[in-house]
């Protein structure tokens, strides 16, 4: 549904997006991850037809975002980061306005339908300026849904919401992901992990990782340090773990013993479990230390920095 090929966007001398390539499939929520200023919003604006790419192509629902901008826009629902709304209009009037511009035949029942969907039916007649931040976010989402688009592009929809609202919104996005193509940007990585079927990690205009969050985790968990806790004296446990095959070293940490694998592609957990069970100690916890996307992100960025120190480092720095 979304295919991006070598997409480049330059603002004068500054290159915001440096030739990224990725795709998003229908029936999936694709997470677009990255710190602020990574190029997420720029990419999304290109995908919605708001601005043209400097080079490269992007196709949404089979249409080129530049050549068939209107066709693309017809099939995309977009929630912009700042959730811009007309504050002097009521929620229903606003949705009817957008619906009418989109050419919806009966905008009023449709607006009520969408408001119902986002749980705002009771405030349909309220002016938007009187609504809370969370409600406005929902009006914005309703706006993106009004024409039931096959593709939804949501730019940081959970920003500034309270925890309960965040949970509800994530649930809604997950639901929508079942029969829509959803591209969902966030800089909160646990959120992507929770909601997304696929993540694309972007930093400084470049994609640094992409894939299923579980696959990503698995590939990174290999070689990750392992935390081991058991009903045993810390010193004895450390000695035991250090002696397990595939473990390079082990230290006593805050919550237990931390084991460092011998090589990056080894997962020594099963061996450690076996060793502990053999001692008849009660194993209370064993997990890789890098298991969430924050860690993945940090890890990948760290590795990238290490690569940059390698011979071509000067070139890589110049590009950013």
């Amino acid at each position: 549904m979304i295919e991006v090929q070598n997409l480049v966007k330059k603002y004068g001398e500054v290159t915001a997006v440096k030739g990224i390539t990725f795709s998003a499939e229908p029936g999936q929520v694709t997470g677009f991850l990255g710190p602020n200023g990574a190029g997420k919003t720029t990419t999304m604006r290109i995908l919605t037809g708001f601005m043209p790419p400097t080079a490269g192509t992007a196709r949404v629902a089979g249409y080129d975002v530049f050549d068939k901008s209107l066709e693309v826009r017809r099939r995309v629902g977009y929630l912009a980061e700042s959730v811009p709304l007309y504050r002097d209009m009521t929620a229903r009037d606003y949705l009817m306005y957008i619906g009418e511009i989109r050419g919806i035949k009966r905008p009023r029942p449709r607006a009520d339908e969408v408001l119902e969907r986002v749980g705002l039916a009771s405030r349909a007649g309220s002016r938007i300026r009187t609504l809370s931040k969370g409600m406005r976010q929902r009006v914005g989402l309703a706006q993106a849904l009004i024409h039931n688009p096959p593709v939804l592009i949501l730019d940081e929809p959970t920003i500034g919401l309270d925890p309960l609202q965040v949970l509800e919104l994530r649930q809604l996005v997950s639901d929508l992901g079942r029969d829509h193509t959803v591209l969902f940007s966030t800089h909160i990585l646990s959120e992507a992990e929770q909601v997304c079927d696929k993540v694309v990690i972007i930093n400084r205009g470049e994609i640094i990782a992409a894939g299923n969050p579980n696959d990503l985790r698995a590939s990174l968990e290999r070689g990750a340090r392992v935390l081991v806790r058991a009903d045993a004296p810390a010193g004895a446990l450390r000695e035991l773990v250090a002696g397990v095959k595939g473990v390079q070293s082990a230290e006593i940490g805050m919550n237990g013993v931390v084991a460092t694998p011998a090589s990056a592609d080894r997962d020594p957990r099963s061996e450690i479990v076996q060793a502990v069970v053999q001692k008849n100690w009660k194993l209370t916890e064993i997990r890789p230390l890098a298991i969430n996307l924050e860690d993945i992100f940090l890890e990948v960025t760290r590795r990238q920095a290490q690569d940059a120190d390698a011979p071509q480092s000067a070139e890589a720095e110049a590009g950013s």
């Binding site: 070598n6 480049v8 030739g19 990224i20 390539t21 990725f22 400097t54 694309v200």
Partner: peptide
Amino acid sequence: MAKQIPDPIKTQA
């Protein structure tokens, strides 16, 4: 993991 594009800033013109 996606591979980055070496020289992306080349436009047709």
